[in-house]
């Protein structure tokens, strides 16, 4: 079943997307990608991926955060439940703390980010595969 799962990578680093695509496709995943928030939201609607791998620091610093909230705000249950793995140096145990800061006022430091997992950059592809596998297994039935 995971071999046919579709993964959406939302990251503005095209080289990283290429590298991750090799790793994911080798495991049999279907891979879609988007380089910013808008394209990412469109791709999520159109492709309905089973899991989203998301970068936070896209062109507009904290674009990844906005992506999460805009996605989760949609009514359909799919958007509230699709697992998101954030690619960022957030440490799970510490509260959300980002650099640069939260001065744009759209979120508060320490506010809960409704995602399933974090994988620190630089990304170890083996670790990412393991986390994607786990997220898909833990995913509530549609």
């Amino acid at each position: 079943m995971p071999s046919r799962a579709k993964i959406l990578i939302v990251d503005d680093d095209k080289d990283l997307v290429v590298a991750l695509r090799f790793a994911l496709e080798r495991e049999g995943y279907q891979v879609a990608s988007a380089h910013d928030l808008t394209v990412g939201l469109e791709a999520a609607s159109a492709e309905r991926p089973d899991c989203i791998v998301l970068d936070i620091m896209m062109p507009h610093a904290t674009e990844g955060f906005h992506f999460v909230w805009r996605l989760r705000q949609q009514d359909e249950a799919y958007f509230r439940n699709v697992p998101i793995i954030v690619l960022s140096a957030i440490h799970e145990r510490t509260d959300l703390r980002f650099y640069p800061d939260s001065s744009d006022g759209t979120y508060q430091a320490g506010e809960f980010l409704p995602v399933q997992d974090f994988v620190d950059k630089p990304i170890d592809p083996a670790l990412l595969l393991e986390r994607i596998d786990r997220a898909l297994r833990l995913k509530p039935p549609a």
Partner: peptide, 11 residues
């Protein structure tokens, strides 16, 4: 860029 290099090399 360094992170991407590392990931690509690991892949």
């Amino acid at each position: 860029p360094l992170g991407t290099i590392e990931t690509a090399l690991k892949v």
